[in-house]
């Protein structure tokens, strides 16, 4: 909130700097998402989309997990309604992100809300909520978020383009294990987040929950296990009086 109360002159001077700080903070994730973007592009070609459709998917849908799952369903000949319901389940986690960022983003002008809303990926949420500032206080900065979100968008689309080109030359790239990139990236994000026992509890419960749901083939497993994990973390913190 501090940017809203700072004098305009100071804000104007620091916008540029904040933007590039956001870009730099997101760079490791941009590099890490390349294999996943290549997978999204090459798999779209494999499934039978045209180059333009494949690129548009990354440019307008801009949601890795939902894109890959939808492509798998298109390939299997599953109908539009099922694809959209599955998309809704996979993307429902973004409701949690937008709720968590409501206090920071909802007071901003419409163009900021729309842009940051469109760019609100798992990676951007992680970047803005774990930002390290010299005074160790969490402060939301719109320019920092925009820098992070835009650079991630550009890298995701370039990687998709590489995938589209490679996918036309090399068949079955989806069997290479490019999706390991997402496991590796998220682990690199999650481990430093575990700064309190309640967060460890949350992570372990979410882990076991999602694995159980996956084995039982429960479609809403992601949402169910994340919510249970969050509830367990909150309960643990409240019962042990852990400082938040």
């Amino acid at each position: 909130m501090s940017t809203l109360t700072q004098p305009e002159t100071y804000v104007a001077q620091s916008n540029h700097k904040s933007f590039w700080q956001g870009v730099i903070a997101t760079l490791p994730l941009c590099i890490a998402v390349i294999p996943w973007g290549i997978l999204a592009g090459s798999y779209a070609i494999e499934v039978g989309l045209t180059s333009l459709e494949s690129q548009a998917m990354s440019a307008i849908v801009f949601a890795g997990a939902a894109q890959l799952v939808a492509l798998g369903m298109i390939k299997a000949g599953i109908g539009l309604t099922s694809i959209l319901l599955t998309t809704l389940l996979i993307t429902s986690r973004h409701l949690l992100y937008s709720m968590a960022l409501r206090k920071d983003i909802s007071p901003l002008p419409l163009k900021w809300r729309l842009s940051l809303g469109f760019l609100l990926t798992d990676e951007l949420f992680a970047i803005v909520t774990t930002r390290k500032t010299p005074n160790k206080q969490h402060t939301f900065d719109r320019w920092y978020a925009l820098g992070g979100g835009l650079s991630f968008y550009v890298f995701w689309n370039i990687a998709t383009l590489i995938g589209i080109i490679a996918g036309q030359a090399i068949p079955n790239m989806e069997e290479w294990g490019l999706d390991f990139a997402i496991a590796s990236t998220f682990i690199a994000l999650i481990i430093p987040m575990i700064k309190a026992k309640s967060i460890l509890v949350c992570v372990l419960v979410s882990l076991v929950g999602s694995v159980v749901c996956s084995v039982l083939n429960i479609e809403a497993g992601l949402l169910i296990s994340a919510l249970i994990g969050m509830a367990c973390g909150t309960l643990y913190a409240q019962m042990t009086g852990e400082a938040s």
Binding site: D122, A126, S206, G233, Q238
Partner: peptide, 18 residues
């Protein structure tokens, strides 16, 4: 407070099955 656990919970739930 509940929402502050969203990032670790969701990211974990995405990759654990993988």
């Amino acid at each position: 407070q509940f929402l502050s656990y969203a990032a670790p919970a969701v990211l974990t739930a995405i990759i654990a099955p993988l």
